[in-house]
Design a protein around this nucleic acid. Sequence first.
DNA 1: AAATAACTTAAGCATGAACTTTACCATTGA
DNA 2: TCAATGGTAAAGTTCATGCTTAAGTTATTT
Lengths: 107, 107
Amino acid sequence: MLNQPANLDLMYQALADPTRRAMLERLTRGPASVSQLAEPFAMSLPAVVQHLQVLEGSGLVKTEKIGRVRTCTLDTTTMQQAEQWINDRRTAWGKRLDRLADFLGED
Amino acid sequence: MLNQPANLDLMYQALADPTRRAMLERLTRGPASVSQLAEPFAMSLPAVVQHLQVLEGSGLVKTEKIGRVRTCTLDTTTMQQAEQWINDRRTAWGKRLDRLADFLGED
DNA sequence: AAATAACTTAAGCATGAACTTTACCATTGA
DNA sequence: TCAATGGTAAAGTTCATGCTTAAGTTATTT
């Protein structure tokens, strides 16, 4: 039920790279193999796989290897945790501003 | 109206460090000076200021120096952008799963 | 005016991140 | 069976990150 702070590190770290965000974006349109994921990028396959490992390590992506092909899919429950953390802080600060506004008697 | 991808890099990068998230958390309880922000951490002041610069560079925090004291506050509009990006991807994938469920005739 | 408080600047260092190339397995299809 | 496909492993390079210490620079206070 609690946030695992270590996981938040990994999640936001994973989201900080534009290549990885593009890979996530691709996966919102459905599962993909490693080569399919790699195709849009001007980068070696091992580099793409390293990004993929970061995404998997953060829990944002799940993969499964069948035969010689590894298939990648989004894990939205982890995304939701990252989103939730921001939302909690943002709204906590929002409420504080509301209380301040009340105190100042604005409307 | 569009996402600035460069800013997302900086935002998520800023959120990836536990010290910086703790600083944000502190700021949800109201503005703070640099020394006040630094107080909970077993770290030199310059180190804290460097974290602060990352937060400011990402737009998550605004600061203003008055006299010799610099006061820091949250900027929630930027937080909302980070949150929005995740939400968009997560729900896009969610809808895809829904369509798949429809196709499979589940209920 | 001198001391202190609140930062700021600069430099250096150790670690990690984002690639690369090369070589190496496993499947699978001809 | 043997070549091609899809991915994995290892090692090296370069640049960024997260600190440190030491030495300023401005406000305030006394």
